[in-house]
Design a protein around this nucleic acid. Structure first.
Ligand SMILES: [Zn+2]
Ligand SMILES: [Zn+2]
Ligand SMILES: [Zn+2]
Ligand SMILES: [Zn+2]
Lengths: 156, 156
DNA sequence: CTTGACTCTGGAATCGATTCCAGGGTGCAT
DNA sequence: ATGCACCCTGGAATCGATTCCAGAGTCAAG
C-alpha cells in the first residue's frame, strides 16, 4: 500500500492518465506540468488536479497542438493571463491545416485506389515470371498527387 | 556551358527533378540510385534515365512508400528480380492505412470544427478581461477523438 | 592565374514527442 | 537485512527524410 494522503507519485499519475512516467517527467522539464513538491525522499508528490492537466494536454496534442505551444499557453494561464484568444487563433490554424491535409490525403487515396485496381488486374494477366512493371506506371503519368512541402503532423 | 556529352552531374539531376543535390547523393548512399561512373575529376556522371528513377521515387514517397522499402524493391529489380507482387502488397497496405488515417483526421476535423464554433461564440460573449477557459473545455467531455498509437506518416 | 560556381566527402544536425539508459536512492514487506 | 518495486537524474537515442557543415578539389570564364 501507499500513503495516499501526501499526494500522487509520478508513476501513479502516469497510470491514471495512460502515459508513461518518463512522459510525466518530460512534461515537467518543458514547463507543461508545474514542479510539484517532493517527499522527504525526493519523490514528486502531485496534487490530484495534475491529472486533469495531463488529460488536457493529451487532448490538445490530438488536436494538433504542440508541446511548445501548450507550454507557452499554460505558462500564461498559470501566471493569471488570458490565453483564450491565442488558443482560438491556434485552433483555427490547426483546423485549416487539418482540412488541407485531409484534402491532400483524399487526393492521394483516389490515386492510390485506381493504382491498386490497375495493378491487380495487370498482375492477374501477367505471366508470374515476367515483370509487370508496376512501379514503372507511376512515372510521368502526369496525374494528380499533392506536391506538399509543408509538414502537417499530428500526434506522436 | 557544360559538356553534356559525358553525362549529368548531380546538380543537374537535382535541378531536373526538383530535388536537392544532397538528396541525390543521399539516395545513392542508401542504394536507391546506382553508383554512377565518375568524371576524371571525380564528379558523378549520370545517364539520363536516372531522372525517371528519381521521379519514380518521389512518386512512391508521396504514396507512402519508404526509402527503405524502395531501396529493397529497386535492388531486387536491378538484379533482374520481379518485385511486382511485393509492390502491390505494400501498396494495398498503404492504401489501408491511408483510409484509416483519413477516417481519423475527419473525426478530429469534426470535433475541431464544433470546438472552434463553440469557442468563437463563447469568446464573443465573454468580457475580454475574463477567462473564457477555452482549453478547459477539452477536458473530459468524453467525446470522440481517435486514440491513435501508430505512426502513419507520409512525405518529408 | 584568379575568381566564382560547382562538386566532393562523411558525419552531424534537424523536426517533435517519446523512450531509453545507467548508476544510484527510497520505502515497504517478507 | 534482503528483496523487490518504485523513483531519481540528465543526457542520449529513436523514428525518416532531408539538410547542413567544413575543408578540400574541379573547372570554365575572364
Ligand atoms: Zn480527466
Ligand atoms: Zn514490377
Ligand atoms: Zn519523369
Ligand atoms: Zn482560456
Amino acid at each position: 500500500m501507499v500513503g495516499n494522503g501526501a499526494g500522487l507519485r509520478s508513476g501513479q499519475v502516469a497510470e491514471m492518465t495512460g502515459v508513461s512516467p518518463d512522459t510525466i517527467r518530460h512534461y515537467e522539464r518543458i514547463g507543461i506540468l508545474p514542479h510539484p513538491p517532493r517527499s522527504c525522499g525526493g519523490y514528486r508528490l502531485y496534487s490530484a488536479d495534475v491529472i486533469e492537466r495531463v488529460h488536457l494536454v493529451r487532448r490538445a496534442l490530438q488536436l494538433g497542438f504542440t508541446l511548445a505551444e501548450l507550454s507557452e499557453i499554460l505558462r500564461v494561464r498559470d501566471k493569471g493571463g488570458i490565453p483564450c484568444r491565442r488558443v482560438l487563433h491556434l485552433a483555427e490554424e490547426k483546423l485549416r491545416s487539418l482540412e488541407h491535409q485531409i484534402a491532400e490525403l483524399r487526393q492521394t487515396q483516389t490515386y492510390m485506389k485506381s493504382l491498386v485496381r490497375q495493378w491487380r488486374s495487370k498482375l492477374a494477366l501477367t505471366d508470374p515470371s515476367s515483370k509487370a512493371l508496376l512501379l514503372h506506371s507511376l512515372i510521368d503519368d502526369g496525374s494528380s498527387l499533392p506536391n506538399t512541402k509543408k509538414k502537417l503532423r499530428r500526434r506522436k
